[in-house]
Design a protein around this nucleic acid. Structure first.
Lengths: 241, 241, 241, 241
DNA sequence: TATGAATGAGGATTCATTCAT
DNA sequence: TATGAATGAATCCTCATTCAT
């Protein structure tokens, strides 16, 4: 007992040290590209010697991949955590996802960067997660995610939403986040039309019904709230520069 | 006379050397990230000594930026070149753009990567061009590109279309390119709805009219063609793996 | 009582652990040079944590020297163990030595390597043993081992025999080991001539008498055995590659 | 012409720089084992930056191998250079070899160390040269170097001579070098006896005739010289320590 | 006594950049 | 203008050693 207790203490400390390194790495790799982050930076940020980093992760790339997985895991967790409550539908799902984005834009940029032009292993970490999310959505909408047209359509829809978030952040969050997310349901409607056009054999009736119901639900929730003038009227600032 | 002739020859040679380097750099930087491309690689690919690279571009970053500008210029050129002929409208514009993408996916990936997470100077090169394209489209649709909601909407629409191209390429081009591009007009319709929802003050009547007209034109062109069964019915292969 | 019993058990365990490490170290250091053997390798091969190695041997060099001493001790033991039985003469001595070599070539290579170009302390471990062996031989032959010419001669003779073993092993043991060892007595005769030439004052009569007797003894033993055709006729395979 | 001249100057300088590095490396690697020589040491000893070393040799191991080849080449050259003059026989050959050893013991130690326990590539560099020398000797003696027994015998003989040199150097060169080398002919006689014993089918008549002739020639040369008392009588110092 | 997490000095290697020719 | 040898700052990684548990 005593012995296993001692071992437990050591293991716990080791695990904590690993976590400290991982958190530091996730933060640094989110803010700067791989080659501009030094191993010593990470170790120093975690309050440790760089040797420990190699002890726990073997190499710089090792901790990089671990950090990316960590980021993905955190996003997934966030998504899962919020799913209870609300309509349980698409809107909630997206709200969960994009609220976490709004809270930590740097991670989000990492994720988007990771999806494009990175090497296969890194891409896979992010894309696997994203396809999982897409498949969940396809399933929820009664669509067949094995159909390439569905895949192309939904992936494009998500990419558009992601980029909308990016531009929205860059432009200083000109509208309420919830309304932006709501608007994604309208672009989804256009995406469904696209899918129908590219493959008329796809049955979209269920998806359209759900989408309408979801929008109604959101509109009703919106109507119940005290609506600020800005958010409602969309009287957004004009860009002059 | 002879001397100025010689000088002319020399200048021409110098210009050619510069071009060779630029082309090599554009290709390499399109396929691998900045830090994985070595100065020697570029010089070697151009059949020159690396010293010359510094003569012509001053530094690695110098040739990198020049290569990125070159890529952008090439895309812009392609876009402009195709504009004459056709309806002169949105569909033609996009066809010009995305046909060149289909021909050179690596450049396209560069451009997409360049827009996310890169440093300001690089981002600007790509985004300036993209916003220019977006502004042209906004203008063509009678939309106010200074409105943040319009910007967010159109940027997201483009990003979705870009990603659709990427997924389409990855999945082995499961439908005809022209039909894919046509489908982008349907997602644009959804985007217009989004914009209307986020800012009801935006007047979309002109845009909607144009969009309908454009779709009619494309549909008619499509109808005139000998339609292959696959393209028409969209009987695309299912993905099983 | 109980306590001393426990202590005894503990001590025994410790000794066993020490031995396991030593054996692992001897094997590894025999196969790879010092710097290519890692402390972790040794500990792992011994089925322990590398920390224990430092408990028992203080440092990597510590266990290295201990391993080298171990190897020397093992060779010496082998030599001593075989001395009883046989003629008790030179031939037996060499047979004892070189049969153990044939059984464990890696250790032998260690020993040869240890004698050349290593630092003083390591060299001493091996050379002390070797000189001891040489002195024993010199004594047995009635030679004065303090005479430099005798030393040079006998050391060279041993080195030649060692290298003959090495080449013999490399060439796939082309003749019987006992005959190879027997042949060393003939090269010893040449060595005695060398010594006589370099220092005519050395009295070799006793040595020559002994040598002749030894050869007779071996020849007789050989003759008594059922002689295989190969061994007797020396019809060895020719090397063609 | 002018241009090629310029290029010539640059190439020459580069070659010289390469040589400086090689010479420095050969010296350092001769005095200390591989891992105790730092890249910076070599570069510094050659009066250059370490970068140049990598420019010319690619890696530390690269320059190491080059240095070993250089040492071998130098020994071979020495051997070849001395061959003209003298009897052209075995004794001259060995004198050429071992006089260069006496002049540069450190290289010699390198060579011996390189032959034992080093990795295959390094061993090959040295052994190839040594076997070449052995084959030349075998050929000169009318022996078949493809016979394993001949190989074992001659290799052992050489190893003995090498070690005799080593001990002779360690003991402070107690006899004249030429007499030591002469004595090697006597051990060769013993080696021939060994070979005869291990493979009676080998015809040694020619070798023995040559050996006798060689010894006569040396003895005669020796007799002609003013013999110092030490060298002649071999009244060597006794070793007391 | 045994463990293995933590340490950090030490060293090889890379590669953009300079500059003499 | 073109070359490529020379440079050295920057950085990843190794691995013997320490020490708290």
């Amino acid at each position: 007992m005593t012995e296993s207790g001692k071992i437990g203490v050591r293991q716990e400390r080791a695990t904590q040290a690993r976590r400290r390194l991982l958190v530091a790495a996730a933060r640094l790799f989110s803010r700067r590209p791989y080659d501009e982050v030094e191993v010593d930076d990470i170790a120093h940020a975690a309050g440790m010697a760089h040797g420990s980093l190699f002890h726990h992760f073997g190499s710089k790339r090792g901790i990089y991949l671990a950090a990316m997985e960590e980021i993905v895991a955190r996003l997934r967790e966030r998504r899962a955590g919020r799913l209870q409550g609300g309509s349980g539908g698409l809107g909630d799902d997206m709200e969960a996802q994009y609220m976490s984005v709004a809270e930590n834009p740097a991670f989000f940029v990492s994720v988007m960067r990771g999806g494009i032009g990175a090497d296969a292993e890194v891409q896979q970490i992010f894309e696997r997660d994203r396809w999982e999310a897409i498949e969940a959505k396809a399933c929820g909408l009664g669509l067949d995610s094995a159909n390439p047209v569905v895949r192309v359509g939904l992936r494009a829809w998500i990419a558009g939403a992601d980029h909308a978030m990016l531009t929205w952040l860059e432009l200083g969050r000109p509208v309420a986040l919830s309304r932006l997310i709501e608007s994604f349901l309208l672009t989804l409607a256009g995406t469904l039309d696209s899918i129908a056009m590219l493959d008329p054999s796809v049955d979209l009736s269920h998806a359209r019904t759900l989408l309408r119901r979801e929008r109604d639900w959101l509109a009703q929730r919106e109507g119940a709230r005290p609506v600020t003038k800005t958010a409602r009227s969309g009287a957004v600032r004009r860009i002059t520069a």
